[in-house]
Write a protein that binds this DNA or RNA. Structure first.
Lengths: 115, 115
DNA sequence: CGGTATCCCTTCCGATACTG
DNA sequence: CAGTATCGGAAGGGATACCG
């Protein structure tokens, strides 16, 4: 478990959830892994914009927090697969609703500038 | 609308949602305002740990993003009330699920250290 | 009452290069 | 293939004091 998850006084459990799931990439990774198990390189390719360094860090934190599992296959070339734990899969409804909310938000609040 | 909401290529709408709702305080504020309209001082007192400066910044961003409404009553002493917009209220289910998820996460992953 | 101003530290996050 | 190392800017966030 990461340090710092329990040492801040939380006003509500929403803060606890956001402490674990906040940041730009965490829930996007969960979104990907809800579809299927992914290798490191697959995630890197499919999530455009993330650097290997950030992907590694986010995956490690999600692993420490018990959201994903990391499976290392000792082969040549190496193969590492990431999947969701039960705790991670329990986010399916929330991730789905957030995806829907974000889509309708963009529909209702289109970007002003065209360039 | 805040700058930067639409200029990052998003892999999924979950990223859009987190761009608006991410951070330590945003959804906690929405959680409070789901209960009822709050004045600035009420939010400040009830959300222990937040500084006036941060509370102001988070409220302004939520207002820019169309999540909350700011109502200034021209009285002495001044009174400012914050409430949710329709868009903000549309987060009710998600916030409720996140609250439940956070609670059960803490139940399943208790802090190791007692102090 | 409802904020600002100033200062400063930490964390997030990206670019680039390198490795077993 | 699956990462690490190093660097550095941007943003998040807190302490304290002050203002209309």
């Amino acid at each position: 478990m990461r340090k710092g998850l329990h040492d801040k006084p939380a006003n509500c459990m929403v803060e606890v959830a956001m402490e674990i799931l906040g940041g730009r990439w965490k829930l996007a990774i969960v979104y990907k892994l809800l579809q299927r198990t992914h290798r490191f390189g697959e995630l890197h390719r499919e999530m455009r914009g993330i650097t290997p360094r950030m992907l590694t860090r986010q995956l490690r934190e999600l692993e420490e927090d018990g959201i994903i599992a990391r499976m290392v296959h000792r082969e040549v070339p190496p193969r590492v697969e990431y999947s969701l734990t039960d705790t991670g899969r329990s986010l399916e409804t929330i991730v789905g609703l957030l995806d829907t909310w974000g889509r309708s938000y963009l529909d209702d609040h289109p970007a002003v500038q065209a360039g």
